[in-house]
Design a protein around this nucleic acid. Structure first.
Lengths: 229, 229
DNA sequence: TTCACATTTCGATGATAATGGAAACGTCTA
DNA sequence: TAGACGTTTCCATTATCATCGAAATGTGAA
């Protein structure tokens, strides 16, 4: 069996605390300049650069040069989801300070999982879509039903376009705080993007946490028939 | 956030190829003597002993002394399932030799995932239980319905006894070859045990693979209404 | 041009940890 | 009681790798 090699090489990516910190920080799906990541991991810029170069070589992250900054992001959604899965085994972080606990509450409530929404909000929305019969669970796939086609089109999503993307169209992603599934894949990404475009959510600075706006709460209730908060 | 620490310490368990090989070998749920594990990992007994001692200290594996042998096994089902999950990201192993490919086919078909059945057989059986309405999916939980209570009792399982165990009763476990869920938890373990007791399956030596007997094929068709092979 | 700033490259250092040889320990068998 | 065997402990070796200081590169601003 040579999958041993794969498993251990994947694991060694995260086994180093500095790399883990960097990846955890990148899990918000945004691009981050190298210095930012160094600060987040509590290491010098050189060390961060070393790790980032290594990860870029393997293909875990990609770089984009803008001016004198280099912006890094996680290359593949599937890698981000793997890290999320690992988090679900690490278990809910033991609360150390009130500040952390507060941050934790926010993360549980709504956060980005790379390119799509996660947390309680995402799980409840996904549940609602299943209940309404717009989505249908089939193993780890989430099929869009006929009524779903209409629903998402009404919502402003271009499904044919999303299907064309070279990635899974609609699938489950394990939510480590809720221990339930939420919608991921191109559809999850598209839905999230649309909701942000409608100003339903705002990103917090330097965090994966997402705040739901007043319009958001109203819109979610209207469209999905659920009450958040 | 101090879950960083957790994540990386979990990952470092598997990041070493030797430990990964040992754990992969232990994933069959059986007890293995130290020498056996050393051979499986391709390292000397001393080195294996070193790693096993380390993992025992953390609580990942437990020891049992029998005569001059020391038998090791994975301590918690949840740890075994985490490794299974990691495997699903490592992806199907690239086929190197015909021998491996053959072994791989067997693993895909039916294997042990620590203490319960996995592979195509397990996924199909789980599907059948859901379709028949004996189980009901609720997030990652698999609830036993009223008809399910009867079904499992008929099958010879003592559900109240299984519920008493200090572990999850009935839950989903991600199958890395099928990329679907199969039944795990105390119920999954109990069901598997019962099927082995009825001689439906035989273990292969030195492998996680499981062979379905003639009685097994017949019984599975009768009880679950599915045809395997 | 010159300076400031973000980032990388180079090089040296230090720590960590996997590894196997030698030997000890305990248990089984003859 | 002696010897074989499975396993562990002790120990020295070795390789790997994260880390950071110093210097180089490249970009933007003045």
């Amino acid at each position: 069996m040579n999958m041993k090699r794969n498993v251990s090489s994947i694991a060694s990516l995260i086994s180093d605390p500095s790399r883990a910190a960097i990846l955890l920080h990148l899990l918000d799906g945004r691009c981050h300049p190298a210095g930012n990541l160094a600060a987040a991991a509590g290491i010098t810029p050189q060390t961060a650069s070393f790790h980032l170069a290594k990860m870029a070589e393997i293909g875990t992250v990609t770089v984009e040069k803008h001016g004198r900054h280099r912006y890094y992001r996680i290359a593949q959604a599937s890698d981000a989801e793997m890290i999320e899965q690992l988090l679900s085994f690490a278990g809910p972080a033991p609360v150390v300070s009130l500040r952390q606990s507060d941050q934790m509450k926010k993360l549980r409530h709504a956060r980005m999982c790379y390119d799509h929404l996660a947390g309680e909000a995402a799980v409840r929305i996904t549940e609602s879509l299943l209940r309404a019969g717009h989505l249908q669970k089939d193993g780890l796939q989430l099929h869009v039903t006929v009524s779903g086609e209409t629903f998402f089109a009404d919502f402003g999503l271009d499904l044919p376009q999303l299907r064309k993307k070279r990635r899974a169209f609609s699938r489950c992603c394990l939510d480590w705080t809720e221990r339930e599934h939420h919608l991921a894949g191109a559809l999850g990404q598209g839905l999230t993007e649309r909701m942000f475009a409608m100003d339903w959510f705002h990103r917090e600075e330097q965090s994966r946490a997402v705040r739901i706006t007043q319009e958001g709460k109203q819109g979610i209730t209207e469209r999905f028939g659920i009450q958040l908060d």
